[in-house]
Design a protein around this nucleic acid. Sequence first.
DNA 1: GTCAATAATATTGTATACAATCTTATATCT
DNA 2: AGATATAAGATTGTATACAATATTATTGAC
Lengths: 219, 219
Amino acid sequence: MYKNRADQIAEEIQELVFSRSFQDGERLDEIRLAKRFGVSRTPLREALKKLTLSGIVEKIPNRGVFVRQPGPIELLDMFEVMSELESICGKLAAKRITDIALKNLHEANSKCKKALKKSNPDSYYLENELFHKIIYNQSGNSFLERETIKLQKRLEPFRRIQLRFRGRIEQSMSEHEAIVEALSSGDAVGAECALRNHVSVQGDKFHQLVASFNIKENY
Amino acid sequence: MYKNRADQIAEEIQELVFSRSFQDGERLDEIRLAKRFGVSRTPLREALKKLTLSGIVEKIPNRGVFVRQPGPIELLDMFEVMSELESICGKLAAKRITDIALKNLHEANSKCKKALKKSNPDSYYLENELFHKIIYNQSGNSFLERETIKLQKRLEPFRRIQLRFRGRIEQSMSEHEAIVEALSSGDAVGAECALRNHVSVQGDKFHQLVASFNIKENY
DNA sequence: GTCAATAATATTGTATACAATCTTATATCT
DNA sequence: AGATATAAGATTGTATACAATATTATTGAC
């Protein structure tokens, strides 16, 4: 899959940041990381550059690169954009979705239901991801699809935690029904609203998001 | 402003791509470019990596990097997203804009009018950019602001050409009035629609965009 | 004792040299 | 003559060495 070690290392470091192995504000020492990954500074610097451009780390000239976890405010901002992007995808998809994709969407939704019955959050997350990706794709706008996926990836760790809260999966599932319904009947406004509401962080979800900051996997 | 030569070179190459000094599909030879800019391959590769991640050039492993000008379809996709982003900024700004910013918005709009009277497209473009940036900023969402500016920059060369078409500036100006009106009265839906319509590429604008592909500066 | 200046240290930024990989051309075999 | 295999060439990818710059520590003067 990967062609060069640099991109591979970028992904690995990103994982370490997402999993909080690297704390916020921590400096990423080029030389130490190079030794850790068994490479020279050159590919490691390329990896750090990539992470800098995607906003996961911050580079201060002649000082070093530092981990930059989004704070609550920035995270809320990102979720706000995410909900708008998804709602746009839904709006466009309502008018553009193909019959085949609609069938696949139903199928993905069924798999979500099965995961819910087995009360398997991880499985639900995966099936849910496919469900949403079908909608991104059926927006008929490749650029929008790519951008939405990019942000989705960045928010993934936080969404995953959210699904762990009691009742969240059930609520998510019932919202899916409204989305499918709207897309099936070509109701652009309905799809738009259903998706915005599905993704946006408001009410209880806000508190859950803030709470997720302090969650330790131990408990 | 710049700290390292690599980022500086990235901007310069980007300019060359935007100004079509580098044709679509053209290979960017690392060694030749390094000589041209008087640096070694290392900073030049960093520059190319940056451009790759922003999508301006495409990197094929072990083959090289190639200029990748968006085709008409991709460009339409990007404009569709741009109009939606702007409309979101407007929707949010309608509820969040400060009195001071509203005053600045009026002022920026006045300057646009002056540029229109002098029939100075370049001046109009600059003032217009400020006008829009105030709205992005007053969305109260920093992440949205950054993302919108990023896309705006990428579409800049095309928007600039569009403004050259007869009557386009006058039309743009009258649309501004509706935007200011909506934002002043806190009309979220009005601002949303006005901005989407202002930016989206439809009708005549579509043909102008397609036509701009074949425009030579000589004529 | 405190402030400033200079030296020492550490870290990033760049250049060059080398290795790996892919493409292309040529030669040989069927 | 065509196809395949091998070798030559070109280009990217990586390692290492060096230069520039910023930070910190130390020394000296007031």
